[in-house]
Write a protein that binds this DNA or RNA. Structure first.
Length: 326
DNA sequence: AGCACA
């Protein structure tokens, strides 16, 4: 009768109460995740590499529009494995920060071997799924061929977001290596074996202010703020205010209006599609009933490959102005 | 990275 709902290894025991708010300021232990360390089978890695021209022929099956179980639809955190042991939280953050709906992420040195796992939390299930579909199977370190394995987390991250404009959290359960290093500030580059295998995702993200907190034998660092070097970050799609019309780019040159409409018409509230050929590179505008439905479609179709796609998946943003009626 | 139609 002892039903331990908090057992991290319990198969599908979800908390009955919404875990969103931790009353105490103390950081709760994140959901233990034996997860993919033990699970032998990953979903087959897609052959999709974001942003890189790789001419895969359209013989490949259409992209998976994966639909999750009802319980999984409540999950808006992703579990990330396949990371190299020298991965930095900064890299995880740069990996996810541009994904629509991203909230915050967590890097955990599990202390089991050199295993490192990460959790990325989004504002909703759809945006988490979109990010997963885009990034799963992506080669994280071209030097070693390390490939990302991303799945929905078994439960939503309980780590609160660091703070407003907060960034990421690091949990280090690893035994302290014999080092002259005092454990005071633990988040700075622990300057060893750091050849910084630059990935495609690296941004400018140099100075970070961090506060280290001791909790038992593990160190939790909360990164409060990213200080952009000097230059402002490139504008991301989040800068564009939400709009019920979407701007759609990265269409293949042979993409037809019908093909695109077919993909869009699966979504609630879809109304009108207009395509414009812009110097061979077509773009499109899709109008929806309201911002909620346009957002849903944007998050779901982000990075999705069409038959006609030749330079990677769709790129969707809120349009700068709403489609004119008529 | 690319945002029109009136």
């Amino acid at each position: 009768m002892a039903f331990t709902a908090s057992s991290g290894y319990a198969q599908r025991s979800y908390e009955p109460k919404p875990p969103l708010h931790s009353p105490a300021a103390t950081i709760h232990q994140p959901p233990l995740h034996g997860g993919s360390l033990d699970s032998p089978s990953y979903p087959p890695p897609p052959s999709y590499d974001p942003g890189y021209t790789h001419h895969h022929h359209q013989t490949a099956p259409p992209p998976p529009l994966v639909h999750a179980n009802p319980e999984q639809q409540r999950i808006h955190s992703l579990f990330v494995s396949g990371l190299p042991d020298d991965v930095k939280a900064r890299e995880i953050h740069n990996l996810f920060r541009r994904r629509p709906g991203f909230d915050h992420c967590l890097l955990e040195y599990t202390g089991r071997g050199n295993q490192v796992v990460a959790f990325a939390t989004f504002l909703n299930h759809q945006s988490a799924m979109a990010a997963m579909n885009t990034l799963n199977g992506v080669v994280f370190d071209p030097q070693t061929g390390a490939t990302l394995h991303i799945e929905l987390a078994r439960s939503n991250s309980r780590t609160k977001r660091p703070r407003e404009g907060g960034v990421y959290v690091v949990i280090d359960k690893r035994a302290k290596v014999a080092n002259n290093d005092h454990e005071t500030s633990s988040n700075d580059e622990d300057g060893r074996s750091d050849e910084a295998p630059d990935t495609y995702y690296d941004d400018a993200c140099d100075k970070i202010a961090s506060t280290a907190v001791e909790s038992g034998d593990m160190t939790i660092s909360m990164v409060d703020e990213v200080t952009p070097n000097e230059r402002p970050e490139k504008p991301i799609s989040g800068d564009i205010p939400p709009c019920s019309t979407l701007f759609i780019a990265n269409l293949g040159p042979t993409c037809t209006e019908d093909e695109l409409r077919d993909a869009l018409s699966k979504f609630t509230g879809f109304h009108t599609l207009k395509m414009r050929g812009r110097g061979g590179m077509p773009v499109a505008f899709a109008d929806f009933e309201d911002i909620e439905s346009s957002t849903e479609a944007m998050n779901s179709l982000q990075g999705v490959l069409l038959e006609s796609s030749d330079r990677g998946g769709l790129h969707l943003e809120y349009a700068r102005s709403k489609m004119r009626k008529g």
